[in-house]
Structure formats: structure tokens, C-alpha cells
Design a protein around this nucleic acid. Structure first.
Lengths: 334, 334
DNA sequence: TACCTTTGTTTAAACGATTAAATTAAATTG
DNA sequence: CAATTTAATTTAATCGTTTAAACAAAGGTA
């Protein structure tokens, strides 16, 4: 950052009267037992004084490592995504890794493109929250033996690496709680999606209802991603018409909850207050809704830590380990 | 991404029976008038067939360009930040640039670190939403002639490059609107900060009140960043005690609005509904508050586009242009 | 003293692209 | 048809590091 030309190894070498090799060794802490302490100290002093910063390109070209990992998010606009990002970022920092963040905004082609871009940029590994229909892309990635790990979303019956939440349990326990609160007509607003975590969330809801002998007929409403706003309103309308005694709604993602609450406000359903709201995933904005919202909270810190640890060890040890872990969160009852 | 070894220029050259130079020329579209069309076509075909991806390090080392710019956000958790990010990202994409995203979470030392990291990573330029007390860092950056532009926040009486919103006008017009709505006791919740855009917002509020001969005494409440939740509650409490006829609150950022609304809900002030809420900056969550919230909307697209355009031309033409632009947003009345 | 270790340092070849300059082949001209 | 121009391609240096291997000097040993 100094105004003068960029300092490079050569400059330090000249100033300290040694070869560039020695400078490199000292600055990277190699062969230290072989190098005279005075020389090493002198080199370090000069490097510091000249404010040396290694050229990332040259270093990367030679070592084939970037000390960077790529994080592919499904949708950066989602509060869930920024939470994950924050955790991954701080976790990676402790390993001296940097993060490249990308968001697919739930678009398949953007997903493919991001993997390309990141690999071209020579990231050392990838943490991926996959988009719908991205299985083929991930299969390809998997087969190249490139270090990666899926988070949040995954595909069943594969040998992919993943760390995910127990999605079945999330809605199962949330629904159980509603039932415990004496709710009998529970609507479930979820996404129209073949993403496995969404399928699992649906299964959890249905199972809990079945066990309590509560009807699920017409109770599950699936929202098209491309018509979010409109569909949420339409489907809640439908629920209310089919069941005038509707007494609870479970939303399967925080974004759905957002639009659901907006509907409730618009129709002033928040005032009568006889429809209990329950959500999957935490979000700050729940606090400004006029009645309390309970939710299922994923253990994000745990997931983030495990993902990063796995990835780093995979990168450094180049082993053939596979990780497939499902972690369990908890209900937060308001 | 193929399972076999990485394809490089040399491989294409061999396969196509030409030198690597020619391959490079063709793939980069140089000297095209000099190169036989058949040869060029053959090279392109081979490159495509072998799925060639240039090595980013080698390319960068030689060209001293990364085609990447760094985006330094003040706080990624802020909805405002993800909006900006989305706009910058898509705008840069059209110039074939990638974005490195970083968030300082409003910490000075993190800010300094991020600039270091990004410059070490050889980004070609920086878009910066600066943190408090970062003026010295930016001065240093500015003096190196490194391409950068500030957004959203800036420092007065400098020759820094910036594109910002008219912050004075934002609160001035918002306050005017409240007055027009017949509000007489207006509280202003803002940040305790020496960031110029915050100072300007305060000035705008006070000016509008003065013009309407409305008291501002004890009406401006400043929240400490480190005690957000607690301070917001405390200060609104104070306002209500000092003025039992408090009839409006203007929040100077979306995050403040978030906590303010939370307070309103907790104290059920949303029900009586006689305190009008007005905000600076747009946010989706306004929709789930039980009464409509008007707000001042910054022209983010315009700002993002201008910032990117300036930066790109600065990078490519290495000129000595300076940009200092203030753009004006509008009130969105609900 | 001659030889072997150990210590401390340097030499020089990579890494994979770009690009100015050189070279060769083909076309044009007088 | 030799000379010249133009077209097409190659050679080789370079970017700034890392690192195996070579080397030199000093110390130890028999």
C-alpha cells in the first residue's frame, strides 16, 4: 500500500544481503533450524520495515493453494444466509482462510456458473448450500475429488459430503408443539420443491398430524418460488376457506414466514389472534410481529464449525474421508 | 473440472498443433486480423472440447489484473447491505468482474484488515461502505492512487471518491412529511456516531422542525452501537416520559427501526396506534408491522451503477478523475 | 592432514500464462 | 524472378514466488 512500487522478495533480499530463497524460507518459517538466527531476524526486520506483502498470484501459482474457500449461498437476501455466512467467516478466519461469497438466488444456471467461477479462482474448497436440481452438478464436483461439503440442503442416497439439520424432526417437533397447544386445524405452508430438506419437512408435519389423528387433507400448501408473494396469499386464503376453524399455521422457511406474516397483517388476522404461528428457522423480524412466534432453531454454529473443520482437514490431508452428519436443533417457544 | 489433470494452454497447443502463443492470442481475441480463421476455429474447438479454464494465478501474475473488485460492507446482517450487494454484483457481472464480499461488522480493526486482505488478493478496485473512524485508512488508500469509491457513507471536505445519498434531505423530507400529517411531537432515534451521514440526518431532522417551529429539545436520542437493544428501549421510554403527547418517531436507519418496532410491540404501542412511525431506508420487514410505515428510499440502483461505472473506468483508463456525487431518493408513503 | 559432518546459504528450475520481437511463408510488385 | 510487402506463426523472456539440489565454510574425527 505504500505509494512507491510494490515491494517484493527480491527487494528484501537485496536490502538484507541474502538470496530470495533465504527470505522465502524465513518468511514461511521453513528450515528454521538451518538458518542463523541473526540472519533470520534481519530478514524479518527488513520485511516488516518495507511492509512486504507477498504477491498472491505468484504464491498461488507456485503452491497451487489460495487459502480461500468459496461459499455458495442459495439466497443472500435470506436472513438465514447471512447468519451462516457470519459463522463460516469467523470460523474460517481462525484457520487463516478467506471466504469468497456467492449467491445463486435459487437459480440453477447461476449455481453452475458460481462453481465454475470459484474453481477457476482456485479456491481450495467449497461450502455449498445447493439449489434445486443441482444434483448433477454436485455429482460432477464429487467425482473430481475436489474438497467440498454441503450444508443445510442435501440429497439422499448419495455419497456426498454434508452436514445438515434434521429437517424431519424440525417440523415434526414444531407440529407436536402446536398439537400440545391444543391446535387441531393446522395449515402447513411450504415450498413447491424437490429439494430433499423440503420433502423431509413435509414428512415431519404429516407424521406428527397422523400420530395425533389430525387431518392433513388440503392442509399442505406448496408455494411456487417464482410467485412467492401471490401464492402465499392465495394458499392461506384457501386454507381459511376450507377450514373456518383454522387455528395454526406452520411455515417451513423463514422467507415463507415473512410473506405469511405480511398476509396476516394485511387481513388483520393478527388482531383476532386465534391462529397460532410457528416457523422453521430463526429470524430477527419475528420480534416485530404483533404476537409471539415460536420457531425451530437449527444449530447453525455447530453446523458451521463442523463443515469448516471437515473441509480444512480434507484440504490439508487430502484424505478420502466422507462426512454425512445430521444435527438436531431445538424449539424456541415464545 | 474433469477428473483428469488440469488442462493448460500447452495441451491445447499440442492438440491443435500450434504454439501456446497462438492459443493465447485466439482465446483472448488479440491479433485476430493476423490469424487464419481456420486455425482460430480449430483452437477454439479444442479449447472447448478439453474444457479449458485459464489458471487464474498465472494469468493474474502476468497481467497484474484479477478482474475482481472487493466490496467492503459495514454490516452484512443489515438488509440494506444485502440489497447493495445484489445490485453491485449484478452490475459488475455485466463488466465480467467478480466480487469479493467482506463485512466489517462496524469494527475499525476489521476494516483495516479487510483492506489489507483485499489488496493482497490483488483486487483491481474497492467499493467501500466505511466504518466509523476509518478516515485515516481511507486517506492512506487514497494517497496510493488505488481505484476505490465510497458508497452510502463518506467524509466531508476531502477529495475522496464517493457516491452517496443526500442524507440531509432524507430526514428533512421525512420530517416535513410527518409535520404535514399534523404531527407535533416528533422523536428522532439515531445513532451515536461521528459518521457524516448520521450527522447529516440529524441536521435534516432539526432543520425541518425548526422551520415548522416544532421543538427538538430532548427529541433527538442517540443510540450506542454496542448497546443497541437496550438503548433503543431506554430512549423511547425517555421520549414518552418527557412528552406524553409524543405522536411520531423517525428512525434514522433500518436497524434502528427494527429495534424500535420491537419496542413498540413489546409495549403494545402498535395497538393504540397514535404514534406514527417513519424510517430511513427500505426494508421488507416493515410489511409485517401492524401499521404501515412510510420511509425514505435511497436510489440504490442508481448509486450502485454509478459506483461501478466509475470504478471500472478508473481501473481501465487509470485516469485521475474524481467522483463526488450526491443523489436524491424519495419518500414512500404508506 | 585428509575426510566426513554439520551448518548456513545460494543457484536455478519450476508454476502457467502473456506478449514483444523474431521468424517463416505466402502474396504482390516492378 | 528478385525484392518487397503482408500474413501467419513461433521464440523466448517475463511476472514473483517456492523449493530441490548444489555449494561453501566451519567443525569434528581418525
Amino acid at each position: 500500500m505504500s505509494k512507491t512500487k510494490k515491494i517484493q522478495l527480491k527487494d528484501i533480499a537485496e536490502e538484507a544481503n541474502v538470496s530470495t530463497a533465504l527470505v522465502s524460507y524465513v518468511l514461511n518459517g521453513r528450515h528454521l533450524n538451518r538458518i542463523k538466527k541473526e540472519t533470520a531476524d534481519r530478514i524479518k526486520e527488513v520485511a516488516k520495515r518495507l511492509n512486504y506483502r507477498p504477491n498472491h498470484f505468484a504464491k498461488g501459482l507456485k503452491t497451487q493453494k489460495s487459502n480461500t474457500i468459496g461459499l455458495i449461498l442459495a439466497d443472500l437476501d435470506n436472513p438465514f444466509s447471512t447468519q451462516i455466512t457470519r459463522i463460516i467467516e469467523s470460523e474460517l478466519l481462525s484457520y487463516k482462510y478467506n471466504v469468497l461469497i456467492g449467491s445463486t438466488y435459487e437459480k440453477e444456471d447461476k449455481f453452475k456458473e458460481l462453481i465454475e467461477v470459484f474453481i477457476n479462482r482456485q479456491v481450495d474448497g467449497l461450502i455449498i448450500l445447493p439449489t434445486e436440481n443441482s444434483k448433477i452438478e454436485i455429482e460432477r464436483l464429487h467425482s473430481t475429488n475436489f474438497p467440498y461439503v454441503l450444508m443445510d440442503r442435501y440429497f439422499p442416497n448419495t455419497s456426498f459430503n454434508y452436514i445438515v439439520n434434521d429437517n424431519y424432526f424440525s417440523t415434526y417437533s414444531a407440529t407436536k408443539q402446536l398439537i400440545k397447544n391444543n391446535r387441531k386445524k393446522i395449515g402447513f405452508i411450504t415450498l413447491q420443491s424437490n429439494l430433499f430438506h423440503i420433502i423431509e419437512r413435509k414428512r415431519g408435519f404429516i407424521k406428527a398430524c397422523k400420530e395425533a389423528e389430525i387431518t392433513t387433507e388440503n392442509m399442505v400448501k406448496e408455494i411456487r418460488l417464482a410467485h412467492f408473494d401471490e401464492d402465499v396469499a392465495k394458499e392461506i386464503d384457501a386454507l381459511r376457506q376450507e377450514y373456518t376453524d383454522l387455528d395454526a399455521i406452520l411455515f417451513s422457511t423463514d422467507r415463507l414466514t415473512m410473506y405469511g406474516l405480511k398476509y396476516m397483517i394485511q387481513h388483520q388476522l393478527n388482531i383476532t389472534n386465534n391462529i397460532e404461528i410457528m416457523a422453521v428457522d430463526e429470524a430477527k423480524f419475528y420480534d416485530i410481529y404483533s404476537s409471539p412466534i415460536s420457531y425451530y432453531k437449527q444449530p447453525l454454529e455447530e453446523m458451521g464449525q463442523k463443515a469448516v473443520q471437515f473441509l480444512i482437514s480434507k484440504i490439508n490431508e487430502n484424505n478420502s474421508d466422507i462426512i454425512q452428519e445430521t444435527v438436531t436443533g431445538e424449539l424456541v417457544i415464545k
